[in-house]
Design a protein around this nucleic acid. Structure first.
Lengths: 335, 335
DNA sequence: CTGAAAGCGCTTACAG
DNA sequence: CTGAAAGCGCTTACAG
């Protein structure tokens, strides 16, 4: 393992620079090429990429900072990103911050120290510390999932997603709706989706909604939903959820109370996780193309690394998927 | 960004070696320390980790080779691994091979070239090429999920999992059972689990089972299950599935045909994915501690990197979780 | 405590 | 086509 280019050169009876030239596709005579090739094969020589990078002053590694790995959206995004990166000769270094914002900042500096070529940050919140770090490290960074005017960003159209799902649920005649969202600190998921929904609500005279908040995990949603369903006031006919995970939690809470879906309660999600298609009843939701989003982020960061122009902001569209979790209240039932 | 230790030294009026010593916690006088600290702060100096690694001849990066990222088990495993690695000052470089075995071999060499300290391979199949590569690169490698006597391995007790689930389903009075497994090329999932199940079967006189094979994905399982359920022969009262994903597919197929679970068909999985708890009815399965397995793999690879002793083979136990997807045929129903 | 010098393994002009 | 030499940015004995 400790064979260096000098060893190869000595054994092959040539100069180091010749070996290096061979390695990098420079012109070498057939005889020396054959000789070098053989020695490399015999010795099992593997170039030391540090030394290479030390000269080249960069790696072909893209850093990806994620808040967690065990989430459908992140896993899909990262999968798409990895494929695109690999196809373009880049590797992916994943840093999982476990939802710790300060760790995101650290990660930014860490990656810079390692002369990563570029960074994609799957953001949940953007703070001044983020912006300061990005400015200081001076390597290309892309936000994915959240946006900021100073940084290249790729987002999903969360506002449209909320709006579509709102229009849909209202078109089905629901007017006692509970909206189960998440913290407003998450602009994309907590604010945009809700605002989109509210816009739909405003357009429909006579419709009202109650707004609630849940954590991101299924267990938190189960709890939040139980509170809503046990509520003393008017019971909602539908719960609109900011994410599919939350919708899953709501469905579970409903099952536990033996409410039927959609007869007793309609439920919608946002995200389009695979599992929403598999469960019964299938969940009506808005599908996000996470893998495609990941690929796009990869393509953009590669362009930035090559100093090519990239749109400051890219908005990815999404699509309503109608399944069986919403009851139609606007037609008269036969029985 | 191009500030080097030499710049710091010049500005601070000291030698490079002094700066280096400061950086590495060597003894420096208070005055020079203060001076250096200030210059570093002013310039925003970030050490070049290539140069560092070039001397140190190693990184603190562990490579993790995975067949895919968008799977519950992989995501959990990797999450656990990343936490343990980070807590010990290591970073994780993930390579996703997208189920392509030859890419696993490439990845092994790639990682070696980058002087990764160690490698964890989430294996599905082990070939001679793997073994040859591992021998050649000469850095520590751990198999996770599959075993081989020549390589440090961490596996789950797949045989016991199959056995437990077999005993359980038999104890519930099922005797027309379909076992829906996967390719035997995957020793852990395709062979071990099935053999465990078969052992349970042999111990119970009069019980028989039909064996079928499915792909790993839900969609493949839906198809396989449809074939079983439409079969001309005796219909099974239970389908035992080699993974939770397959069980999810079976449940979906059953719903599509309006078979009730568990009344018309019992279903079991193996894996213990989060979603199996959330769906209705809850899936009876065998829970694998994926995150803990990932942490353990991380701990082991770190030990190997430090030349410490590690058991050649570690077998992780798992636990039956009884939920609502299995009917009890051995009691007389009241109606 | 501090500094000059050599070296980690590679690449890159520059001569020949 | 080939080789000698300098240099990438850092660390590490070795003197002082």
């Amino acid at each position: 393992m400790n064979i260096t280019i000098a060893d190869i050169a000595k054994i092959a009876g040539v100069a180091k620079s010749t070996v290096s030239r061979y390695l990098n596709g420079g012109s070498v005579s057939d005889t020396t090429r054959l000789k070098i090739e053989q020695v490399i094969k015999e010795t099992g020589y593997i170039p030391n990429s540090f030394a290479q990078s030390l000269k080249a002053k960069k790696t072909s590694i893209i850093g990806v900072i994620v808040p967690r790995l065990d989430s459908f959206s992140v896993a899909q995004t990262v999968t798409g990103m990895e494929e695109e990166l690999r196809e373009n000769g880049y590797q992916m270094l994943i840093i999982n911050t476990n939802q710790d914002l300060s760790r995101e900042i650290e990660a930014l500096y860490d990656l810079a120290r390692q002369k990563i070529s570029g960074i994609v940050l799957l953001a949940t919140q953007i703070t001044d510390f983020h912006l300061a770090a990005i400015k200081e490290i001076g390597i290309p960074v892309i936000f994915h999932g959240q946006q900021h005017p100073d940084v290249h960003s790729i987002i999903y159209n969360d506002y449209a997603a909320g709006y579509e799902i709102g229009r849909y649920i209202l078109s089905k005649g629901h007017n006692r709706i509970a909206y189960l969202g998440v913290t407003e600190q998450d602009v994309a998921v907590g604010v945009e989706r809700k605002c989109g929904f509210q816009k739909a609500l405003k357009e429909q005279s006579g419709a009202t909604a109650q707004f609630y908040e849940s954590g991101f995990k299924v267990a938190a949603a189960v709890e939040a939903a139980s509170t809503i369903l046990d509520g003393s006031g008017q019971r909602p006919t539908a719960i609109v959820c900011a994410t599919d995970s939350i919708a899953l939690g709501v469905m579970k809470a409903a099952h536990m109370k033996e409410w039927r879906i959609p007869e007793d309660l309609s439920v919608t999600g946002i995200g389009g996780y695979d599992v929403t298609e598999v469960i019964h009843p299938g969940l009506t939701t808005v599908k996000y193309q996470y893998a495609a989003g990941g690929r796009l982020a990869a393509r953009h960061i590669i362009k930035l690394v090559h100093d090519e122009r990239v749109d400051r902001l890219t908005v990815l569209q999404c699509e309503l998927i109608e399944r069986e979790s919403v009851d139609n209240k606007s037609i008269h039932r036969l029985y």
